[in-house]
Design a protein around this nucleic acid. Structure first.
Lengths: 227, 227
DNA sequence: GTCTATACTACGATAGAC
DNA sequence: GTCTATCGTAGTATAGAC
């Protein structure tokens, strides 16, 4: 499996090098993908390093070699997916800014915040498993992740600033608290919570229609901001 | 330490028996209290059975003997504290029903739902540690607890029914979804989320004033229901 | 540099002595 | 009822193969 040896032994030098380079990246990526999926489906604590490496078809020590530890693996997946999600949000906010000459409405700001995660939530979306991972990592995660959630507000700053501009009549505390409540609405969209809602409503609610869900959430949050 | 041995050796038979009976109940309770506190402060996964029994001053096997397993211990604490909290909520809803001849306002219903947990949240409240435990158990808990959260809606039924009566003009789906959003606001009141809010607002927000927080939440949720 | 086999430590759980 | 010894499994560290 060693690239140097393969290249030296094999007469097909270029192919050997190419394979080696792919293998290097491939092993790490196999672990990454298998771990994200298993964590999303069964939870961090219910998935062992042995489960991950078995599913990925790699050696047990691969996790520690490529990521340092099981915790660090979780953190790396969390960071990458969070960055992707926040990039989509920032882009939507930017577009709203352009449309409204730097002063978008409360609804536009909230839409930029809520739409990307709800898009990922759609049953047929390619990022659905990633969102499920993020949801579980956020609540079941390690102390590292909890620390990030506590202190990293850089991606939220853009949104709170835009809301302060949209509602200059409100005190900053009011704006921050209402943003906090809106995030609570969003983060409560775990699959367990949907199940409970379905039991309570006896099946009349359907979270599969993410467009309708987004409309409901926006209406509720916008009303909360208007009060 | 063995009660039988003590009673047989000691001339003070009754005292030995009494001590034994007290010890039986006391040991279980010592474990219960120590576990709740440690789980609340450090999280379920970060606290070992050895930590709990050491803090309680009892033998390692006590957890398994009195509760069956570490998971079952968590579940028993969760059940007891949840029952206490929901009893307070039900009492408040009952009082609101009495005041309004069986048709309380949306605000009254929401107040009955939100006030008890926010009372427990107060810095000097005797149940503050229990609420912190419940918050952590809800998000970091075992599959048993997740299953309960998914399927047990009996305590919520009272509130959804009252809301359906208060707003007969809304479709049941609307009511269920808005209740879901309101619960999201409430469940987002974890200590980590408060910390982030404080960072974002640069210290101008204060969750210590639970009366003001309750007023803010009620105003936001009521507006969401009014829309 | 990567990968593999293997050993080490800590955990929850349990059987059997008392 | 309580305690000790021990088991299986987990995450991790490391020596050596390639």
């Amino acid at each position: 499996m060693s690239p140097t040896t393969d290249a030296a032994v094999s007469p097909l030098l270029t192919e050997g090098v190419a394979e080696a380079a792919e293998t290097e990246a491939a092993t790490k990526n196999l672990v990454f993908v298998a771990a994200e999926r298993l964590f999303a489906l069964h939870g961090f604590q219910n998935v062992s390093v042995r489960d991950i490496t078995a599913a990925a078809g790699v050696n047990l020590a691969s996790v520690n070699y490529h990521f340092g530890s099981k915790d660090a693996l979780l953190l790396e997946i969390f960071r990458r997916r969070t960055a992707e999600l926040n990039r989509e949000r920032a882009r939507m906010l930017h577009e709203a800014n352009d449309r409204h000459a730097g002063k978008p409405t409360v609804r536009d700001v909230l839409a930029a915040l809520l739409t990307p995660p709800l898009r990922w939530l759609a049953p047929d979306h390619e990022r659905r498993i990633s969102l499920q991972f993020l949801i579980r990592a956020r609540s079941e995660g390690t102390d590292d992740i909890r620390q990030i959630l506590k202190t990293d507000v850089s991606h939220l700053r853009r949104f709170s600033d835009a809301l302060l501009i949209a509602r200059p009549d409100l005190s900053p505390e009011d704006v921050y608290w209402r943003l906090h409540f809106t995030l609570g609405m969003l983060h409560n969209n775990r699959f367990a919570e949907f199940d409970r809602l379905n039991v309570l409503s006896e099946g009349t609610t359907s979270e599969g229609d993410v467009v309708a869900l987004l409309a409901r959430m926006l209406a509720f949050a916008e009303a909360g901001f208007a009060a």
